[in-house]
């Protein structure tokens, strides 16, 4: 079944990145693949915005980066979560939960 691919909602990309990075050190390409996989190909990560987002998150001190070898022996920039990043992630998740709950309430009331 061919599913329509949706661009990541504005404002949620940061949260998704943080969540994916929370599993362990990971490079940019893998992040985009992982988001796509986990969402069962629902989301397509806009690659043009992925890297600026990564750099911004690193600049804020939520991610830290390190150059390491991949399994195939190539050098790649691996991102991992900082302590501040972990806090940020849980705060964003809380926000998201409340937001989706509120949206759900409104939508169910409309019936």
């Amino acid at each position: 079944m061919e599913q329509e691919k949706v661009e990541v909602l504005k404002g949620t990309l940061d949260m998704l990145i943080l969540k994916v990075v929370a599993f362990g050190p990971i490079h940019g390409y893998a992040i985009s693949q992982r988001i796509q996989q986990i969402s069962r190909d629902f989301f397509q990560v806009p690659e043009g915005s992925l890297y600026p987002a990564l750099h911004r998150l690193e600049d804020r001190g939520w991610l830290q980066a390190k150059w390491e070898e991949t399994e195939t022996g190539r050098d790649a920039k691996f991102y991992s979560l900082t302590r501040a990043g972990r806090k940020r992630l849980s705060a964003e998740m809380d926000n998201w939960e409340r937001l989706s709950e509120a949206v759900g309430l409104i939508l169910s009331a409309a019936e």
């Binding site: 490079h27 940019g28 390409y29 985009s32 690659e47 890297y51 190539r74 050098d75 790649a76 920039k77």
Partner: peptide
């Protein structure tokens, strides 16, 4: 920066 993007 260049290396990171090219890797991708």
């Amino acid at each position: 920066l260049d290396a990171e993007l090219r890797f991708h």
